[in-house]
Write a protein that binds this DNA or RNA. Structure first.
Length: 234
DNA sequence: AAGCGGATCGTCT
DNA sequence: GACGATCCGCTTG
């Protein structure tokens, strides 16, 4: 009923994670395949949905951080009051107006960074916000970056469930990462397709906004334990 | 489980 | 000078 995807995530998360993490060596091969620029040269609604199941990868020296995307939100252009691009181009949001496949990182509430990827051709604004992921590699590094301890399996959700948490776990800041090309492993921050099967997707309203709050532009992998916010029923 | 308020600062009016 | 695409801790039910 559920497709194998959600089941696999909910039944074997820790086992998968520990096995993968212990085999960190050689994982570069598995996650070396970045999504091409054309993937992002589309409507953010399509991109946001298709990014579910893909893997965010960060390379720091020999170490790899990797997490499977389980939740995204689409932000459009002038016709989307909730989008940073709505009020037109500024120094802050310029990446959203540039070519597709680049990191737009912003600082929010005086505390947190959030990662987006630009969509649509140069000159047309749009992006996808990364809201939550399932940790695959670099659990210890993520826990250290987040300042939390992993005492039981449920604690893994504290690492990357939420846009601010994801960014912190990956050490993403505006200063370091804004404008980086996410389609190249040379940027040391990229999005990989490791052949994971397409997930069953739920579409909901976006979280944490006041304007255009009713638009169904949030996408989550059905049944994933790693989505942010209250655990909705499926 | 859900609802609150505080922290904290870059960005644009 | 006001406001956030958030998180955390505390309170209540």
């Amino acid at each position: 009923m559920n497709g194998g995807v959600a089941q696999k995530i909910s039944l074997f998360p820790v086992l998968d994670v520990m096995q993968l993490d212990s085999k960190n060596r050689g994982s570069l091969t598995r996650f070396r395949n970045p999504l091409p620029r054309e993937f992002f040269n589309r409507d953010p609604r399509r991109v946001g949905r298709d990014l579910l199941g893909k893997v965010l990868v960060r390379r720091t020296g020999r170490k790899l951080l990797a997490a499977r995307i389980v939740e995204t939100e689409a932000y459009l252009g002038e016709d989307d009051p909730a989008a940073h691009a709505a009020a037109g181009r500024t120094p802050r949001n310029a990446v959203l107006f540039g070519p597709p496949g680049y990191a737009y990182v912003y600082f929010i509430y005086g505390n947190h960074y959030c990662l987006n990827v630009s969509c649509l051709p140069d000159g047309v604004p749009g992006g996808v916000l990364f809201r939550a992921a399932e940790p695959l590699l670099g659990i210890e590094e993520m826990a250290r970056a987040r300042g939390v301890e992993i005492a039981n399996p449920r604690d893994l959700q504290k690492l990357t469930s939420g846009p601010g948490r994801m960014a912190e776990a990956f050490g993403i800041t505006r200063e370091r990462d804004n404008g980086k090309d996410l389609t190249s492993t040379r940027s040391h921050l990229w999005l990989a397709d490791d052949g994971y099967p397409t997930a069953r997707v739920l579409t909901t309203r976006r979280i944490g906004i006041t304007k255009a709050a009713d638009s169904p532009l949030r996408y989550v992998i059905a049944g994933s334990e790693f989505v942010s916010g209250p655990k909705g029923k499926t």
